[in-house]
């Protein structure tokens, strides 16, 4: 059996698996950013990891989001109730504390983090 026949028997698709297909549901609404620091280490986000950010998703309580807080970017866990807060996820370092979002804050969710790309070596 030659290669062409194999392809024919197993369907037309001869495309290799594509990571984009797995990680990016909405290409026109997806941006990449890079993490700094270790405030989200318990969420599996390490320094220098690439985050896949999907803007087409409406953020829900508990989502990890990239937000625009007082004119700078931050990645944190979003808490909608009982109060709007951004939570760091690092149990080892108690210097990281939640940020309450008040009416005075310039705050906007930039997008929801859907995947983390982490190099292990």
């Amino acid at each position: 059996m030659n290669m062409m026949a194999l392809r024919h028997d197993f369907g037309e698709s001869d495309e290799a698996l594509d990571l984009n297909e797995l990680c990016i549901q909405h290409p026109t609404a997806t941006y990449f950013v890079r993490a700094s620091g270790d405030s989200m280490i318990d969420a599996g986000i390490h320094c220098d990891d690439v985050l896949v950010v999907d803007r087409s998703i409406i953020a829900r309580d508990g989502d990890i989001v990239v937000a625009n807080l007082d004119h700078s970017f931050t990645v944190k866990k979003l808490e909608l109730s009982p109060q709007l807060r951004l939570l760091p996820m690092n149990n080892q370092d108690l210097d990281y504390t939640p940020t309450n979002i008040t009416d005075d804050s310039a705050f906007e969710v930039f997008g929801v983090v859907t995947y983390v790309v982490h190099a292990v070596r």
């Binding site: 950013v33 993490a35 990239v66 970017f73």
Partner: peptide
């Protein structure tokens, strides 16, 4: 080039 070069993507902390 935040959307077209890996070395240029935005930093979030």
């Amino acid at each position: 080039s935040f959307t077209t070069r890996w070395g240029d993507i935005a930093r979030v902390s």
